[in-house]
């Protein structure tokens, strides 16, 4: 479905994606996993033919750089946040994209039901909540039943509830012979939607693993929650990143996914750097993501 060979994308001196290769078979689902700035969005934009790049990307056998329009007709794309002419009414937007996707007939009610926003056809896009907008974006992506869905951090701007519902919806949709390429920095999303995971760090692919190994890499379900004074948190994150961890900030400290055999390594590194840790606890990834939302 997708084949990326030696994709390199630079913005001036900054390398956003360095020599990435991957392939995705029909019906398969692949997560691009990494922290912000790891290159997930860049790869997705290259797949959509939105950016110029070095290397080749084929979608459904079609070269994205040369035959982008046809390649994109195989893709349903959901962005991080739907930014579209928000003066349009929902049914107008559906009509517009149905035409652009060469869909002759659209059942508006069924389309909106399918993504869980029934009876919203007459509203203007700007009147929709964030979650509804994402569902509308999904409905638009599904127009014409494309064989490939490309999702870029689709839950990033949603609250806990909305996120859980959307992930559940995507889970239902992914099991229907569709390929799925999605970017996420959330372990729970990755584990519930992906079959394989491409782990990215600073534009480089660090590993490509089945989802089972991904969980193992994350520490068999362990996330170290470090309580630290606020001023030292950014320094700590920088330090831990430098040693191959993927720490994230939450309200009272830092969450660090840790491999099973290295649970104490972050503590040691911080101690060596004379950064004081007040307290710590070990969480499962699910607890960890919940704790992050509660503080967000």
């Amino acid at each position: 479905m997708i084949r990326i060979d030696h994709l390199t994308k630079t913005f001036g001196k900054f390398t956003a994606a360095a020599d990435i290769s991957l392939s995705l078979a029909r019906g398969e689902s692949l997560a691009l996993w990494g922290s912000n700035g790891a290159g997930k969005t860049t790869i997705i934009r290259c797949v959509l033919g939105l950016l110029s790049f070095q290397g080749t990307i084929r979608v459904g056998g079609r070269d994205v750089a040369r035959d982008g329009k046809r390649a994109r007709s195989l893709i349903g794309y959901v962005p991080q946040e739907l930014a579209f002419y928000d003066d349009l009414r929902v049914w107008e937007a559906i009509t517009l994209f149905a035409r652009l996707k060469n869909v002759a007939r659209v059942d508006l009610d069924a389309t909106l039901d399918h993504v869980g926003i029934p009876d919203q056809g007459g509203k203007r896009i700007r009147e929709l909540s964030g979650g509804m907008k994402q569902r509308l974006a999904l409905a638009i992506a599904l127009l014409g039943d494309p064989p490939l869905l490309v999702l870029d951090e689709v839950t990033a701007s949603l609250d806990v509830c909305g996120r859980a519902e959307l992930v559940a919806l995507l889970g239902r949709l992914s099991g229907q012979g569709r390929s799925l390429l999605f970017a996420s920095h959330r372990a729970d999303e990755v584990t519930s939607l992906a079959q394989r995971v491409l782990m990215l760090d600073k534009g480089k692919a660090t590993a490509e693993v089945p989802v089972s190994q991904f969980v193992a890499r994350l520490g068999a379900g362990s996330v170290l929650h470090l309580h630290m004074p606020e001023p030292s948190r950014p320094i700590a994150i920088e330090l831990l990143r430098g040693h191959g961890f993927a720490p994230t900030l939450n309200g009272v400290g830092i969450l660090v996914p840790v491999p099973a055999t290295q649970k104490a390594v972050p503590l040691r590194l911080l101690a060596e750097a004379r950064l004081s840790v007040d307290d710590f606890e070990l969480l499962s990834p699910r607890d960890a993501s919940l704790s992050q939302e509660n503080h967000a």
């Binding site: 959509l48 982008g68 652009l100």
Partner: peptide, 9 residues
């Protein structure tokens, strides 16, 4: 971005 992600040139 969203518009160009559709099958349009």
């Amino acid at each position: 971005l969203f518009l160009l992600a559709q099958p349009v040139s």
